[in-house]
Amino acid sequence: MSATAPAIPAAAPPAPLARLREVTKRYGQLAALDRFSLTLRRGEVTALLGPNGAGKTTAVRLLLGLTRPDAGAAEVLGRDPRSSAARTAIGAMLQVANAPDTLSVREQIELFRSYYPRPLATAELLNRTGLAALERQRFGTLSGGQKQRVLFALAICGDPEVVFLDEPTVGLDIQTRRQVWSEVRALAAAGKAVLLTTHYLEEADALAHRIVLIERGRVVRAGTPHEIKHSIAARRIRCRTRLTAAVLRELPTVTGVEADRDGVVIFAHEPEQVLREMLPLDETIGDLEVSAASLEDAFLALTHTS
């Protein structure tokens, strides 16, 4: 038996822990998700990026078993997300306006720990999230950033295999944001699958192994942050010039032109070629900068929301 077992290829992708397969979800006439697929793998941070209303929240709610797909399937550990085996493998940090504010930090954590079969120790959670000094404080007296940390603690308290983080660093100062980032990296390093939705592209760039760009319920582009950035014009040229946008668009390898204060930003695959042609046409060119396109540029270019 063991002699015939196929060898696992060295470059096999990590095992999927949760996935959406060709999921369609409609609310009335509106398709929030349209044959949308997503795979969350062990040890990977996946960032789901898209404009408001793109379907990010619906994707998260489907994987949490909070709603059912009209077509396709949602799976966590190969099971229905509503099954108890799947639920105990999930931790979620959702956008919560407020929690019952008369319970203390420790009490909130103890309560959520009781839902899981093998929770992390309370002391460990308090230390990891920097809440040890606040454990007796009531939730209502915490600052916005401290509340976010409590919600993060609740998401990881059950030592789940799959962690959903919906805008985890909203309202955090830079230092605390970096702390959360290192915790997210630690989760992935510990073999968890993490799904991150965020409006901070810098955050996706810093944390995600894979980015899935979503718009109107469909995948626009998926890949590593590097691949996404390079899938649009790889470079941007910023300068002051007399040339009109119409002329600039005709130049070789140019993919886009935008007005930017007193100058223009030109997106191009080969900025050298563009500049070679621009310089003889306009001798007044000034304030020239050439830089790599940011994830933000890629995001705007791919989701058409400039």
Partner: peptide, 9 residues
């Protein structure tokens, strides 16, 4: 808050 609890086990 209810949704967060609903998403928990």
């Amino acid at each position: 808050w209810l949704e967060l609890k609903w998403a928990s086990p």
